[in-house]
Simulated scan of single mutants.
Amino acid sequence: MMRFGILGYGGIAQRFVGDSAQVREAEITVIASRTEAKQKAAASAVKTAQIVDQYDACLSSPNVDCVYIALPHLMHKEMAMAALAQHKHVLVEKPGTLTTADWDQLCEEAKRQDCFLMEALKTPFYPSSEIVKNLIEDGAIGQVYEADVNYCYDLKDQTKPGWYIHDAKQGGALYDIGSYLYYFVLDLFPDCCEELQVQAELRNQIDVHFTCELNTRSGVRILTEGAIDRERPREALIRGTKGTLRIPYYYRAEEIILENAQGVQTIRPTLHYTDLGGEIAEVCRCVGNGWLQSPLYPQAKTREVLAFMEAIRSRFPQI
């Protein structure tokens, strides 16, 4: 049994609690929140868990094997290092850190402490990406020449005091959803060129919308877009000389729509886990096998995505 302690109890942590029920090896034993209302919500949701108001109490608990960090981005590295210092395994929400240098330090510390470390990203644990790769390799849509991948949603002026998404140091669209976009792109198209054409719209010192156009060495043009101020169907559209692949919600895809000369076919992969269930199961599997990182989502892949996001952010207008 993998005993999880949770730092923070916002929306994503609440989903983590719900999705942990999909994994019989997972148990929520401690939840730490500094907010009284969230403490009460956590106690109601997990009646067997210990609810604490200090993060250190969770990190030092003998009843915790792995710490799930669901705190604002700027706290990811600090809390992950603190967890590793207590010899706890770590699952840290995306982005794992804000820089590759910080991620390198976390990886080095995890290795030194002989602990498991993984960024919490659901996409690697959905089967859709492998199915898309196989369809492309099998020539289902001919030669791929273009891909359009986006993650755009509208906060609709939602705000609350101190909300990290509005903080210039850790907020904005790229930090919020870039991991989804660029994990998918770099996993599907590993031969991306370094030249990027980036545009960004800043508001109150954060990026509310950005686009990045790039090409692969094999000649595929890739258009990516992210936003927190506008709605667009969140999907990936891959165009080939003989057809198209459309993947709604590509980062947690439950269907793939293939259109070619044979007609339109909807492919629905078999899902063993949904939403966060796959990453929870992966932690249990890896730690149970004595592995320090996931073979399905290794630390180097997180670093690759972070480096790509750093390159994009460096091309934003001066903040």
Rank of each mutant, 00 (worst) to 15 (best):
I177T: 10
I177P: 00
L181M: 03
F184C: 02
P190T: 01
D191W: 05
E194Q: 15
E194V: 03
E195R: 13
E195I: 08
L196F: 03
L196P: 00
L196A: 06
L202F: 03
R203A: 09
Q205F: 03
I206M: 07
F210Y: 15
F210S: 04
T211D: 09
T211V: 07
C212F: 02
E213H: 11
E213D: 14
N215K: 11
S218G: 05
G219Y: 00
G219Q: 01
G219S: 02
G219H: 03
V220N: 02
T224V: 02
A227I: 02
A227L: 04
R230S: 14
R230C: 13
R230T: 14
E231W: 08
R234C: 14
E235A: 13
E235H: 10
I238P: 11
I238Y: 12
R239W: 03
R246W: 02
I247E: 07
P248C: 08
Y251L: 04
Y251T: 07
Y251F: 09
E254T: 13
E259F: 03
N260G: 05
Q265K: 15
T266N: 02
P269L: 12
P269H: 04
H272L: 14
H272D: 06
H272C: 09
T274C: 03
T274N: 14
D275I: 01
L276P: 04
L276H: 05
G277F: 00
V283T: 10
R285M: 11
G288Y: 07
N289S: 14
G290P: 06
W291E: 15
L292I: 11
S294C: 07
S294I: 05
Y297R: 07
Y297K: 08
Q299R: 11
Q299F: 05
A300V: 09
